[in-house]
């Protein structure tokens, strides 16, 4: 186990380093955006002197590296500065939104991951049959549709025509869990449809990839039934690629949901990001980007650790 801990520590260090580089990139990207922040905040009517005062207040006159380190210093302790628009602390603005996004992602993942892996195992078992083809066509169709289109289709059939679910996923902190689940069902379903195909196909490929292995032939020659060959002999050896694709999709569920949140007017972090970009509320944009990057890095780290833990050679050294 000592080896595993050392690997994890190393990956964690690398992850932090990556995050640092990304923070520089985010800062540079925001710097490169055209226009004057003070102007954007105060509007066209502002006089030259008020603009200058605002710039001084926001510290915009400092050289870029100084501003970057000031920002980084705050970010490390969770202080991302103040919103330019509302003067609210960025952390306060983001926290409830991020919780909502996490809730939606978790909701979608709890449905999508088991479905995807079960389907993946089933299509691998019944590979090249009608079932395999139908499952592939359906999931590929759903992944190929733009998410806003899927969202509107679901709204049309499950909300407008039948009235089963609300089309607007407006949630508030005082809602009961059931209410919340009911409200967010449609955006969650949209996300499920988007991510299932990817995970299912990787599960299928990872399993089928192993079917030519000598130990699979051995299992067959021992008279093991087909489903057991897949579930007991192939699946335990195919976790590494499956875990990786699951992690990638979970990251998508958190960082790639902007469109779905907009379609369903869901108060998540994606919508906040879009709003902030249009209002030039840069502290929030920077914080959101950094959170997204951290999410990606953390989930990939989790996937790496997961792959390591499913490798018997590392779990049970000689």
């Amino acid at each position: 186990m000592g080896d595993v801990l050392a690997i994890v520590a190393k990956r964690l260090g690398l992850g932090l380093f990556t995050l640092l580089i990304i923070s520089v990139l985010i800062f540079i990207a925001v710097e490169l955006l055209p226009g004057d922040i003070a102007q954007a905040v105060l509007g066209q009517q502002a006089t030259e002197s008020t603009l200058a005062a605002k710039r001084a207040e926001l510290g915009l006159n400092d050289p870029a590296p100084v501003r970057y380190f000031n920002w980084l210093k705050g970010a490390v302790v969770g202080d991302f500065g103040k919103s330019l628009v509302s003067s609210e602390s960025v952390t306060d603005a983001i926290t409830p939104r991020f919780k909502n996004t996490l809730f939606l992602a978790l909701f979608a993942a709890v449905i999508a991951v088991p479905i995807a892996i079960t389907l993946g195992v089933l299509v691998a078992l019944f590979r090249n049959t009608l079932f395999d083809r139908v499952a592939n066509v359906l999931t590929l169709t759903s992944i190929s549709c733009p998410e806003f289109f899927l969202g509107y289709i679901l709204i049309l059939y499950l909300s407008v025509q039948t009235g089963w679910f609300p089309s607007i996923a407006k949630v508030s902190p005082d809602m009961s869990l059931f209410d919340r689940l009911h409200r967010t069902f449609l955006p969650a379903l949209t996300l499920v449809l988007i991510v299932v195909a990817h995970m299912m196909r990787m599960t299928r490929a990872a399993i089928i990839n192993l079917l030519a292995s000598p130990y699979i032939e051995m299992a067959r020659l021992k008279g093991t039934p087909a489903w057991k060959v897949i579930v007991k002999h192939a699946l335990p050896n195919s976790w590494a690629p499956i875990i990786n694709v699951v992690a990638l999709n979970l990251a998508f569920l958190i960082t790639g949901v902007v469109l779905v949140e907009v379609v369903f007017v869901y108060p998540g972090i994606g919508q906040l990001l879009v709003d902030s970009v249009s209002k030039r509320d840069f502290p929030i944009v920077q914080a959101c980007c950094l959170i997204f990057a951290a999410t990606f890095i953390l989930l990939n780290l989790a996937a790496d650790i997961g792959s390591i833990l499913t490798n018997p050679r590392l779990r049970h050294p000689k």
């Binding site: 292995s213 000598p214 130990y215 032939e217 051995m218 299992a219 007991k232 002999h233 335990p236 050896n237 018997p312 050679r313």
Partner: peptide, 8 residues
Amino acid sequence: AASFNPAH
């Protein structure tokens, strides 16, 4: 070595 399942 190849015909025993490494996971069991």
